[in-house]
Amino acid sequence: MIRILDRPLLHFGLAAATVLALPLLLRSGTLASEILIYALAVAACNLLLGYTGLLSFGQGIFFGLGSYVAGLLLLRTPLPVPAMLIVALLAGAATAAAVGWLSIRRQGVYFVMLTLAFSQMFYFLAYTFSGLTGGDNGLLDVPRPALAGVPLSDPWSYYAYVAVLFLGLFAALQRVALSTFGRTLLAIRDNEARARAIGFPVRAFKVAAFAISGAVTAVAGALHAMLIGVAPLSNIEYHTSETLLIMTIIGGSANLFASVLGAAAYLVAGDLLSAIWPRWLLLLGLILIVIALFLQRGLWGLIERATALVSRRPVSEDSAPDRPALPAEEPQP
């Protein structure tokens, strides 16, 4: 029997509840949209970190790429938004597959260094080809066209659009994580040599994980460019990768909803604290230290502890995701 907090349906329910709660809790539709957009990118990062055990500093590449695809296509072509998002998704998947294919040839610190190097390389490419990307000024005037006659210019109408995409992609990521493919990723994460010995094509699985993660991250980047009306150079820089990793760690890598928690906590805290205290990033450092030392399952771990206190059940100390339960393992009513 699986614990109630490990049920995938609960995670999706919580994601849906977040979508409904944000308009009630926040005044700003822009901030609410940004939370969902980052939640998508963080969930994609979690697929690599939590499910595959790959600490990648390259996620900013795909986020920035998605932003540029959105900017270029919406500014220079008559392509509608859904078609643009599909192009962003494909571009993200292809680029991530290429970056992943080269990076996974090394493990540990060398893998991390390779993703860092790619991150810097793509940043300087974007910086150098300013005719295409706008260079340090970014691609300005990215429009937010109407969708089937419905204008998206109002922050809350755009939020509704982002929310639908968020739930769709979140469900898709969950499906991936719960599939045989996802369970194999967990096996690779736990013991790569054993997975290879059993006969799994480990490299292909890792590249596929990269591609899926890159595709979703690129869609998030495209939505972000439409949200703020610009595809800034900062979206493709190393700092974006770092921010996505920090959000993943704050939320916890135990499941995909933890990523939603991480994104929401980071953005809301930043929004509140930056206006009060200029050095609020110091607090962020402290929070990360506390999480690294005492709360390795992140904010999701806090929820688990609170639930355990109530139900008097032990909490797992493993920071990585538990093996997702198959539907067959669900308790019968």
């Binding site: 005044r27 700003s28 970014g138 922050p155």
Partner: peptide, 22 residues
């Protein structure tokens, strides 16, 4: 009304949108 742009275009655009909304 102080608005922290964090020196980056993305938060700057978002926070200005919010301020205009208010």
């Amino acid at each position: 009304r102080d608005i922290d742009t964090e020196g980056k275009p993305a938060p700057a655009a978002r926070k200005v949108q919010e301020a205009m909304g208010e």
